[in-house]
Computed example of a mutant assay.
Amino acid sequence: MVQYLAQNALTPTIAYTVSVIGSLLGLSFAARARLTVSGARWVWLSLAALSLGGTAVWSMHFIAMMGYSVPDVIIRYDPLLTVGSGALAVAVMAVALALTATRPTNARLVVGGLISGIGIVSMHYMGMASMNFVGTMRHDHGHVIAATAIALVAATAALWFASRLRGSPVIVGASLVMAAAVTAMHYTAMAGGDI
């Protein structure tokens, strides 16, 4: 996997930047949802789920995968699994945000963190399963466990940020931290993969 990072040093930077943008939008929309009542709250939460799940997590993953190649191996992606992994990321963020934004208790935060963290890891490995190539990819169990732990912590932190933080400077800082965690989860998982 060292080869994965070295092949295109710009790809991790672009992937992280996209994750920051998705996090910034998602956390801003979630903050707006907290200030809103009635049906408008659900519109803001939907936009937050789309930004966090679709951009901060899923788009970051596939941009990072653009930097992945194996000598003499052609990699294509299964469209159904690829789109399904994106839908999964958005859906788990929607459920987690609905849990934590409507009544932000510690118990809901933990449950939401578990749902979104497991969903994010599942999205990653579903995205990996969408790769079509001649060969087999194996995943080191230690890296899977580490990536899962990072995803659980990152998802719970993101929900804590989304349900409690206010103010643009704080949301910007939280976006940088969240994107770092999402990116770290991806590259930790990839470091344990071998074709």
Score class of each variant (00 low, 15 high):
V111E: 00
A107Y: 10
H143N: 14
G142N: 02
G119F: 08
A157T: 08
H141A: 14
M126P: 03
S130Y: 07
G142H: 02
V121P: 03
M131G: 01
L109H: 02
M128N: 11
A151R: 08
G119R: 06
H141F: 14
V111M: 01
G135E: 05
R138W: 11
M131K: 07
L109K: 06
V121M: 13
A129P: 02
V111D: 01
H141N: 13
L159W: 03
T156V: 02
G135I: 11
R138T: 14
M128Y: 11
R108G: 00
S122R: 06
S122F: 11
A149P: 03
M128Q: 12
L114E: 00
V134A: 14
H139T: 10
I150N: 08
G113Q: 05
V153G: 09
I145F: 11
V110R: 00
W160G: 04
S116I: 07
T156F: 01
M123Q: 06
V111F: 02
V110N: 00
G119K: 08
M131P: 02
A154N: 06
L109F: 07
L152M: 08
G119N: 05
I118Q: 09
G119T: 07
A158I: 15
A158M: 15
T148D: 04
A146M: 11
A158L: 15
L159V: 02
M131E: 10
A151S: 15
M126G: 06
D140T: 09
S122G: 10
V144G: 04
F133E: 11
T136Y: 13
V144L: 15
I150S: 09
V111R: 01
N132H: 11
I118E: 09
D140Y: 08
I115P: 02
G127Y: 02
V110S: 00
G112Y: 03
A129K: 11
A146N: 07
M123N: 05
Y125R: 08
L152R: 07
A158P: 04
V121N: 05
M126S: 12
I118G: 04
G142F: 01
A149M: 12
L109A: 04
A154R: 02
A147C: 08
L152P: 07
I145M: 10
G135C: 04
A149E: 02
